[in-house]
Design a binder for these strands. Sequence first.
DNA 1: ACATTAAAGTTAAACGTTTTTATTGTGCGG
DNA 2: CCGCACAATAAAAACGTTTAACTTTAATGT
Lengths: 343, 343
Amino acid sequence: MSRPTIKTIAQETGLSIATVSKALNDSPQVRPETRALVVAAAERVGYQLNMHGVQLRTGKTYQVAAIMTAPGPKQNEWEGVEYAQLLSGISWALEDSPYRVSLYAVRSFEESIATIRQIVSLKKADGIIVSGTHADDPRVRLMQEADFPFVTYGTTIHNAPHAYVDADNEQMIRLSVARLAERGHSRIALINPMADLSYSLTRLEAYRKALDIAGLVFDPALTAHGHLTPAFGRENVLHMSSLPNPPTAYICANEASALGAFSGFHARGLVHGRDAVINATDDLNVSQYFAPPITTYFLPIHEPSEMLGRYILRRMEGEAPEALQTLIMPKLIERSDDRLVKS
Amino acid sequence: MSRPTIKTIAQETGLSIATVSKALNDSPQVRPETRALVVAAAERVGYQLNMHGVQLRTGKTYQVAAIMTAPGPKQNEWEGVEYAQLLSGISWALEDSPYRVSLYAVRSFEESIATIRQIVSLKKADGIIVSGTHADDPRVRLMQEADFPFVTYGTTIHNAPHAYVDADNEQMIRLSVARLAERGHSRIALINPMADLSYSLTRLEAYRKALDIAGLVFDPALTAHGHLTPAFGRENVLHMSSLPNPPTAYICANEASALGAFSGFHARGLVHGRDAVINATDDLNVSQYFAPPITTYFLPIHEPSEMLGRYILRRMEGEAPEALQTLIMPKLIERSDDRLVKS
DNA sequence: ACATTAAAGTTAAACGTTTTTATTGTGCGG
DNA sequence: CCGCACAATAAAAACGTTTAACTTTAATGT
């Protein structure tokens, strides 16, 4: 047989399709007993709402677009981003809703703008989740101008208020630097993400402020911005460790670059805890397996990602963006004392 | 004002909507001149096909469901699977088609069965891509019985022929073992994925056969099956290295477990290249940053993933599954000589 | 008792397509 | 010059749903 529709239920119950539709949508226009009848019949025939009819009629898509900026095929370097977990978290948060996650993989920032423009103008989704925010993000402006529901993973700095979820980078860096300073480090390197990313700026400013408070001088030679690959971490250690006055601590923005930093240690014959130490920000929970394990700020990725899902739902229901802003503070996991032991 | 439809074009050209529709679909029933007229008008008004109308009318969804089995929120252990790249690759392969990737994140094998059953019976997608195949996979049977287009990432062993893409695990293990045997290793450990996964069995059998050919004895104590996390790699090194006759080589099924194996080396005071060596299968391209770098078989994940996308398109067009089967041989990257140097 | 109102349904239109069926016009053989 | 085939287009129905507008029935107030 063919799939049952509301027409099937109408015949089954002797009601009109309009009443059936209203009953299924909990309209107050239908008596509770009638509703019960309809629901029973629906159950009996195994009715399942056909979304295509709904979509055509209402114009809603019941899709949440997840924009994922993944490096192109050429780029084989690992960046240690657990996008998969991010996507799963969003997907799970939408589980009990009629919404589905629709994936838009793009290769570059520019392409993500074009994709979002298309989604907005052709209404290919009801909401958008976008990550890798810039300090002044044209995509955010675009969506705001169109009054399109969205949530960002990452804050912006120059844009009007919008819904976001992010790790508390400011606090994380402030505490990191203070902790290392307390332990006697005066030359602290900051391995930072690409400079156009919003959290890069946040981290850099927090870093400068924290140095200031600790009475340490800011040296531009100890900061680096780039793609957070192992290669990047390695290069920076190779370079910075051969400066006249090399750093004794490296704060890496993720575990991939931290792994690369270790590789640099190995190449230079540096010993962790004697010549310098490495700290990281962590969402893979992998740095406990480094040799030796390092101190990290750990944020299980499912927390922000499920929040992204919940927030986009609420945003699509019209909730104000100001109410949907959260910074999550990662947990400090001290796996090393991080004081240098001269031997 | 509102979005143009074929009705708009009909008015614009003075034709009927039927003719417009046919013209846009390259029907032979319409004169080339008329078609040109229609296309010009469509261009002029900025017409874009509304999928909801098409979907309702034709019953096609233009969605490809990607089933992603991701560990639940509790499970914070990294498994080193670049799902994100996999999804991007699929998404890119579908770029020039009307199809979109729709994500179905599930927590377990059982849930993936239920999800697939639903997609098939309610026709929530036109094709399915599924990974993590079992030797005898009920999902494959399910889709085959319903004659539903699908491609698997991973082979099956007991199922009827179907479209798949996979790394050539058999050859990879065979060559790995032979290479290590040549280099004087007689105790070779196999760190394998969960035993119910198809490629686990493939690898195990290839391993046994290769040992046989090399004249080495198979010792069950040197094989382990489990989730390919760093923890698993570490545990196995800790355990196996304290056997009366410990292995001198570890073949790890991925980089996450290889990283964990290194952590085990560190804990036991083992030195890579003196006491034992680690080899891996690699799609992150990360093991070059281990200290020291290790020999791996490398398969850039975008290759199989784009192939998955192309295959599902062809499968949905009705191509026979037998024509859509590919094993890709990863490339051997020798980063270490892997002969033990007694010091 | 009768108009008024509220409650509970029904009818019909609409969303944007595709596709089957019907209509019109043209050139052709006889 | 008449019927016929064929080409090109038009008309209409259909996919499954929601919703505005309407109808019927019952309850209410005076």
